[in-house]
Amino acid sequence: MRLSIYRYNPESDAAPRMQDYDIALGGHDKKLLDVLMRIRETDDSLSFRRSCREGVCGSDAMNINGRNGLACITAVSDLKEPVVLRPLPGFPVIRDLIVDMTQFFTHYNSIKPYLINDQIPPERERLQSPEQRERLNGLYECILCACCSAFCPSYWWNPSKFVGPAGLLQAYRFITDSRDTATRERLAYLDDVYRLYRCRTIMNCTEVCPKGLSPSHAIEQIRVALLRESS
């Protein structure tokens, strides 16, 4: 299999370059991550993040043939050769396919990704009806891999101000949670030309989410909630 991979070592390279690899695949090399691990057998200078190797940890997000995805759940058989691998678009590159996620997580923290409830906690737990619990489906599954935000032009142009699809999906996860009492504050925080309203609903986020979630739908729901709030 032929691959062309983005290489950059801040200690030795003045600028990034592309390096070609020709790799003979073994019988168990089913996913792109398997191929990357095989390259590492001959070239251990190639750097990328990986952990669970089954699409749960969200570490190995990268740009694969022009679209963002997780290497561990991308089938080799679906890929056109040469397979071109680049780091997540718009994120500062630390080394090879490893990007700096600091800003991404700053946005995640900014939407207060935890339950806020000022009422006295009940003895056992805060119960939800099945319908209330149902509303969290499609939101709580996010693994924060950043495939979506790194595929969003609005995030590329305003990475320090636009919360981005991943952060907004999480924001809605708490806005719609029946146990959360800070809905109004959360919405007020997002009523901002940058934080929420940079989104133009092109749906690149939903196109690339490896978990099949729809950040664009969450954003749509936040805008509707804001409309209700102000009318």
Binding site: D191, D192, V193, Y194, Y197, R223, L226, L227, S230
Partner: peptide, 12 residues
């Protein structure tokens, strides 16, 4: 006062 509005412009 903010120079640019979020929802207001979106509604407009």
């Amino acid at each position: 006062m903010r120079l640019f509005h979020g929802q207001r412009a979106w509604v407009l």
